[in-house]
Computed example of a mutant assay.
Amino acid sequence: MEKKIERMRRARKSRGRIRQRGAYRLSVHRTPRHVYAQVQAPDGSRTLAAASTVEPGLRDRSGGTGNINAASEVGRMIAERAKEAGINQVAFDRSGYRYHGRIRALAEAAREAGLQF
Score class of each variant (00 low, 15 high):
residue 1 M to L: 12
residue 3 K to W: 11
residue 3 K to M: 11
residue 4 K to N: 13
residue 4 K to G: 14
residue 5 I to D: 13
residue 5 I to K: 15
residue 6 E to I: 07
residue 7 R to Y: 02
residue 7 R to V: 03
residue 7 R to D: 00
residue 7 R to G: 01
residue 8 M to W: 11
residue 8 M to D: 11
residue 9 R to W: 10
residue 9 R to Q: 13
residue 10 R to G: 10
residue 11 A to T: 05
residue 12 R to V: 14
residue 12 R to F: 15
residue 13 K to E: 15
residue 13 K to T: 12
residue 14 S to K: 14
residue 15 R to S: 06
residue 16 G to C: 08
residue 16 G to F: 07
residue 17 R to V: 10
residue 17 R to D: 09
residue 19 R to C: 07
residue 20 Q to I: 13
residue 20 Q to N: 11
residue 20 Q to T: 14
residue 21 R to N: 08
residue 22 G to H: 04
residue 23 A to N: 09
residue 26 L to S: 01
residue 27 S to T: 15
residue 27 S to N: 13
residue 27 S to F: 09
residue 28 V to G: 04
residue 28 V to H: 03
residue 30 R to G: 02
residue 31 T to M: 02
residue 31 T to N: 03
residue 33 R to N: 13
residue 34 H to L: 01
residue 35 V to R: 02
residue 35 V to M: 00
residue 36 Y to E: 06
residue 36 Y to M: 05
residue 37 A to S: 06
residue 39 V to W: 10
residue 40 Q to C: 13
residue 41 A to H: 08
residue 41 A to Y: 06
residue 42 P to F: 06
residue 43 D to F: 03
residue 43 D to L: 04
residue 44 G to T: 02
residue 47 T to K: 08
residue 47 T to E: 09
residue 47 T to W: 14
residue 49 A to C: 05
residue 49 A to P: 11
residue 49 A to E: 08
residue 51 A to E: 04
residue 51 A to D: 06
residue 51 A to M: 02
residue 52 S to A: 03
residue 52 S to M: 07
residue 52 S to V: 03
residue 53 T to N: 01
residue 53 T to Q: 00
residue 54 V to C: 14
residue 54 V to K: 13
residue 54 V to Q: 14
residue 55 E to Y: 12
residue 56 P to K: 15
residue 57 G to Q: 00
residue 58 L to W: 05
residue 59 R to D: 12
residue 60 D to Y: 09
residue 61 R to L: 14
residue 63 G to C: 09
residue 63 G to W: 05
residue 65 T to G: 10
residue 66 G to W: 00
residue 66 G to S: 00
residue 67 N to T: 01
residue 68 I to T: 08
residue 69 N to R: 15
residue 71 A to M: 01
residue 71 A to D: 00
residue 71 A to P: 00
residue 72 S to M: 13
residue 72 S to C: 10
residue 74 V to N: 04
residue 76 R to W: 12
residue 77 M to N: 11
residue 77 M to P: 03
residue 77 M to W: 10
residue 77 M to Q: 08
residue 78 I to A: 01
residue 78 I to Q: 00
residue 78 I to T: 03
residue 78 I to N: 01
residue 79 A to E: 01
residue 79 A to I: 02
residue 80 E to T: 10
residue 81 R to E: 05
residue 81 R to H: 07
residue 83 K to D: 11
residue 84 E to F: 09
residue 84 E to R: 15
residue 84 E to Q: 15
residue 85 A to D: 01
residue 85 A to Y: 05
residue 86 G to Q: 07
residue 86 G to Y: 08
residue 87 I to K: 08
residue 88 N to R: 14
residue 88 N to T: 11
residue 90 V to W: 04
residue 90 V to L: 06
residue 91 A to R: 04
residue 91 A to E: 05
residue 91 A to G: 04
residue 93 D to G: 05
residue 94 R to K: 14
residue 95 S to T: 06
residue 95 S to Y: 09
residue 95 S to D: 11
residue 96 G to V: 09
residue 96 G to C: 08
residue 98 R to V: 09
residue 99 Y to L: 02
residue 99 Y to W: 07
residue 99 Y to K: 00
residue 100 H to G: 03
residue 101 G to A: 02
residue 101 G to E: 03
residue 101 G to L: 02
residue 101 G to Q: 02
residue 101 G to Y: 00
residue 102 R to K: 07
residue 104 R to N: 10
residue 106 L to V: 06
residue 106 L to T: 03
residue 108 E to V: 05
residue 111 R to F: 13
residue 111 R to A: 14
residue 112 E to R: 15
residue 113 A to Y: 09
residue 114 G to D: 05
residue 114 G to A: 08
residue 114 G to Q: 06
residue 114 G to R: 06
residue 116 Q to N: 14
residue 117 F to L: 11
residue 117 F to M: 10
